[in-house]
């Protein structure tokens, strides 16, 4: 076995995996705190990529600033989605919420097709074609940026959840919403910024991954699928679980595609879900209800 190729495939897998982690963290937060399975999560990823593209091409703003703007705008859209759909439905049956999120997903992706056009677009980044040789491994600056920015974002999320007042309110809501409300926590506010955080992270993922591929209005389907695989594997509601499961999925896909068969690559995620669910039905990192 060629060591260089092996190392390269591991590096490819880690970068892809980190993007999965970024997508899945928002998905798992919304589930962990609010018990909402949000099928529209991938669409916020798509919007993140498109807003980065439009802010960059129409306003001429540089890539990094455009990505930051996209994350903020989509976080605001997340708050709006919560206000219009998820908050009013919070007392309804979970199937109602699930179907509403599916409806929202279809609305955004079809709306995107109408608004942005079906033609693929390319998010221009000055780092996309700059090749970095790290030892025997070749990565573009953009792919290094995906990894690095995701690490920074995740550390930020960790510190926020662990030490900030808002983070503590979120964890309290995750453990027991009624109890949290009784102690004076504003549950409506927690709903709002959980969505803002989750959608902002999804948008950031879209803005970062955008320049490594082409974007089109249905890329959200791909994102939400990968997100769910990671969330189920890592344990619903577990942020640590999402981190390990995401990286694991990325590396195993890359090695599986590299050494077994590319046709098998897509199937690996689903096969891993089955194995994990048989062996640890609550996911790799699940212990009890709540944010971990």
């Amino acid at each position: 076995m060629d060591v260089t190729v092996f190392a390269q495939q591991i590096a490819n897998g880690l970068v892809n995996g980190m993007a999965y982690v970024l997508i899945a963290t928002g998905l798992t937060l919304v589930f962990g705190v609010l018990r909402i399975v949000n099928f529209a999560h991938g669409e916020f990823y798509m919007l993140g990529a498109y807003i980065t593209y439009f802010v960059g091409t129409l306003l001429g703003i540089d890539y990094l600033a455009a990505a930051a703007i996209a994350a903020v705008v989509v976080a605001a859209l997340g708050i709006a989605a919560n206000k219009l759909i998820f908050w009013p439905l919070r007392r309804d049956h979970e199937f109602t919420i699930l179907l509403s999120s599916l409806g929202l997903a279809l609305l955004i992706s079809n709306g995107g097709e109408l608004l942005f056009g079906a033609d693929p677009k390319y998010v221009d980044s000055p780092f996309a074609d700059e090749v970095l040789d790290i030892g025997a491994i070749t990565l573009t600056q953009q792919r290094v940026l995906v990894f690095a920015a995701a690490v920074v974002a995740l550390i930020g999320v960790y510190l926020f959840l662990r030490y900030s007042r808002f983070g503590k309110m979120m964890r309290a809501t995750a453990q027991n919403p009624d109890g949290a409300a009784l102690t004076g926590i504003n549950i409506k506010l927690v709903h709002g910024y959980t969505f803002a955080l989750a959608c902002g992270l999804a948008a950031l993922a879209g803005a970062l991954v955008g320049p490594t591929v082409m974007i089109f209005p249905t890329i959200g389907n791909w994102a939400v699928l990968k997100g769910f695989i990671v969330v189920i594997m890592g344990g619903l509601g577990s942020v640590t679980g999402a981190l390990f499961a995401g990286l694991l999925l990325g590396v195993i896909e890359s090695l599986g595609g590299g050494y077994i068969s590319l046709g098998f690559m897509e199937a690996i995620g689903y096969a891993m879900i089955i194995v994990v669910l048989l062996w640890r039905p609550n996911g790799l990192f699940s212990t009890a209800r709540g944010l971990r």
Binding site: Q9, N12, E253, L262, G263
Partner: peptide, 15 residues
Amino acid sequence: FYNRTDTDFNTALTK
């Protein structure tokens, strides 16, 4: 061979 639904090709191209 890559799949019609693939969005990233680094694995195949590395090979």
